[in-house]
Design a binder for these strands. Structure first.
Lengths: 118, 118
DNA sequence: CAGCATCCGATTTGATACTG
DNA sequence: CAGTATCAAATCGGATGCTG
C-alpha cells in the first residue's frame, strides 16, 4: 500500500476532482460569504435534495475544504464554513462570477429585446 | 412567450450551468491549447465513453462555446475549437490550474513520505 | 474516423418516514 | 434542526453494432 495521495498529473484534473460538480461550486459560492447553516444552504441551492446536499457537504469536509461545527443547543445548530484550503478557492469562484456577469451583458445586448408573442 | 433568455440571477450559477461538470471543464482545458480532433479528446479524457464525450461536445457547441468543423475527407476528420465565447473562459481554467498546482505542492510537502506497508 | 441507435445494468436521485 | 434509512424511480454510462 502506497500512502502518498495519488493526484492526477494534470493540475486542472486535480482541482476538477475536488469541485468539478455543479453543487460543490454553488456551495463554495454560498460559504464564501460566511458560515452557513444546513437549512440556509438547502434553501439557497434550489433543486437540491437534503440527501444530495448532505453527501456533497460530507465530501467537501472529507477533502478538507469545509469545516463543520455542531453547536450543542436545542434545537441543534450546525454551521459549515470554509477551511483555509477552501478559502484558497476564492479566485476560482470569483472567475466564475466574473464570467457570468460578462455573459449576461452579452446576452442582454445581443439578443432580441423582450417581445411578447400573442 | 418571452424571448429573452432566462439566466439565473446569480452569475456563478449562470457559469456553472454551462460548464459545471467534470468533463466540460476538462474538454475546455484540452481545447485551450488549440483545435482537437474527436479521437484526440477521447484519448486525453481517460475514462470517458464515446457517447458521453459526444453529448458534452454537442452541448458545448449548442451553448456557443465550441465550433465544430467537418473536413470533407476520407477518412472523415472533425475538429473542435474554441469560439470567442469559449476562449473567454481561459481565466477560469487558468485558476483551476493554479489551484491544482498549489494543492499538489501542499500535499507533497505535508504528507508522510511514500511508505510501503507489508 | 467520427459518429448514432439501442439495449441494459449500475449509479444517482427524490420522496418519505423516522430520530437525537 | 439536521440529519439517517430506505426504497422506487430516473438518469447515467458502457458495450455493441451499424453507417457515411
Amino acid at each position: 500500500m502506497i500512502v502518498k495521495k495519488d493526484l492526477p498529473d494534470c493540475p486542472v484534473a486535480t482541482t476538477v476532482g475536488l469541485i468539478g460538480n455543479k453543487w460543490k461550486l454553488l456551495i463554495l459560492r454560498d460559504v464564501l460569504t460566511g458560515p452557513k447553516r444546513f437549512g440556509e444552504l438547502h434553501r439557497s441551492l434550489t433543486g437540491i435534495s437534503q440527501k444530495v446536499l448532505t453527501e456533497n457537504l460530507r465530501s467537501m469536509e472529507k477533502d478538507g475544504l469545509l469545516k463543520r461545527t455542531v453547536f450543542p443547543e436545542v434545537p441543534p445548530r450546525v454551521e459549515y464554513m470554509l477551511s483555509e484550503l477552501g478559502t484558497s478557492m476564492r479566485p476560482i469562484i470569483h472567475q466564475l462570477e466574473e464570467w457570468g456577469i460578462g455573459y449576461k451583458e452579452i446576452m442582454t445586448r445581443t439578443e432580441t429585446p423582450t417581445i411578447r408573442t400573442a
